[in-house]
Amino acid sequence: MYDYLYIDIDLQDNITDNIQKIFLENNIKFKFVAEIDSVLKNILFLTSNKNKITENCRTIFLLDRDYDLLDCKGSYYIKNIEDIVKIYNKDIIVEWAAEIQFLAQNTLAYSKDKFDLERAERLREISCEMLSYKYKTNSETIKHIFANEVGYQTPKLENRAAIIKDNKILLVKEKSDNRWALPGGYQDVNKSIKDNVIKECGEEAGAVVKPIKIVSLLDYNKHHNYNFPLGMLKIIVLCEYISHDFKYNIETEDSNFFDFHNLPELSTTRTTFEQIQMCFDCYNNLDNWEVIFD
C-alpha cells in the first residue's frame, strides 16, 4: 500500500467532489503539486502530461487515448480516476515478488549461461520467500502456486459462460463460498475457448450450450477485489441455451436461472454484478455488440 497520492495540479478540475469522497472512503491521502523534483519513496503521482512522467516516484498516467499507453513505460495507466483506488492499495511486496519471478522465469527459459541460470533460480526462490514471509505460508506451497511453470511467464486464462433464456441468466452455486457465479473456470490445456466453455457448462451446470459470441475480454485484476500476482485474462462468452440437467459435482451444488433484477448473492471473485449486466446488454444487442476489452 502506498503512503500518499500526489496529483498534477493541471488535473485539479478533474478531482470532483465525488472523486474526493471515493478517496476519503478508501483512506487515500492526496495533494496537488506542480511537479516531482526529488526522489520520493512509496508515493504515487497522477498526471495526464507525458512530459511529467518521472522516475522520482511511481507515476500513474491518465489515458486520453488507448494508444497513449505506448508512451507510459514504467508507469501505471488508467482510464478513470477512480481506478486509482486499486493501485493505491496494491501490496508492493507482492508486486515486487511477481516482477522478480517474471524476470527469473524468462531468464531460466532463454539463457544458456550457467551462472545466469543459477542466479535466476535463486531470484525465483527469493520471490517465493517474500510471499512466504508475507502470507506466513511455507515456501514450497508458494512455489507450487506461484513459480511452477517453465517458459515465458504469461497470465492465467479464465472463461465464463453467459447463458440467457427467457430473460433470465443461468448461474451456479459455488461450494467454496455458497455464492453464485457464471459457470466457467480456468482454460484447459489442448482445448479451444469454445470447447472449454462447453465443457465447463456441462460439468458445473449440467448445461448443453452453443457458444455464439465473445462478450468481453477483461483484465481480471481490474475488475475484482482479488488480485492474481501474475495476472489473469477473463473471457465471457454468450451461449445459446439448449438444455440443462444439473448433476452432483465437486465444484458446484446447484444451478438455476435468475432474473436480472432478482439476483442471488454473487461470488464476486468469479462474477460481478457489472459483468452480468454486460451479458444482458450483449444479449439484447446481439447484432451490434462490440466486444468489451481492457
Rank of each mutant, 00 (worst) to 15 (best):
M1P: 10
D3G: 07
D3R: 13
Y4K: 14
Y6K: 15
I9K: 15
D10H: 12
L11A: 05
N14Q: 14
I15Y: 03
I19L: 13
Q20E: 15
K21I: 04
L24S: 15
L24H: 11
K29Q: 13
F30A: 09
K31I: 04
F32S: 02
V33F: 01
D37T: 10
T47M: 06
S48T: 03
N51P: 00
K52H: 01
K52G: 03
K52F: 01
E55M: 10
L62S: 04
D68P: 00
G74W: 04
G74L: 02
Y77C: 11
Y77A: 10
I81T: 05
E82H: 12
E82C: 02
D83V: 00
K90T: 11
I92S: 07
I92G: 00
I93Q: 11
F102D: 12
A104G: 07
N106P: 01
N106S: 04
Y110G: 00
K112A: 06
K114P: 08
L117A: 07
I126T: 06
I126K: 07
E129I: 07
S132G: 15
K134Y: 14
K134F: 08
K136C: 06
T137R: 15
N138T: 05
T141M: 10
A147F: 00
A147E: 01
V150H: 10
V150F: 10
G151R: 07
Y152S: 07
Q153F: 01
Q153I: 08
T154H: 10
L157T: 10
L157A: 06
A162C: 13
I163C: 00
K165F: 13
K165Y: 14
N167R: 14
S176H: 12
D177C: 14
R179L: 15
A181I: 01
L182Q: 04
D188L: 13
N190R: 13
C201G: 05
A207D: 11
V209Q: 02
P211F: 02
P211D: 04
K213R: 15
K213E: 14
I214T: 13
S216F: 01
L217D: 08
K222M: 13
H224T: 11
H224M: 05
H224C: 03
Y226C: 04
N227T: 14
P229W: 02
M232T: 13
V237I: 15
E240I: 03
F246L: 09
F246K: 09
T252W: 03
D254N: 15
D254Y: 09
F257Y: 12
F257V: 03
D259L: 11
N262L: 04
P264R: 04
E265F: 10
S267D: 08
S267R: 08
T269N: 14
T271I: 06
F273R: 15
I276M: 04
C279Q: 04
Y283A: 05
E290C: 02
D294A: 07
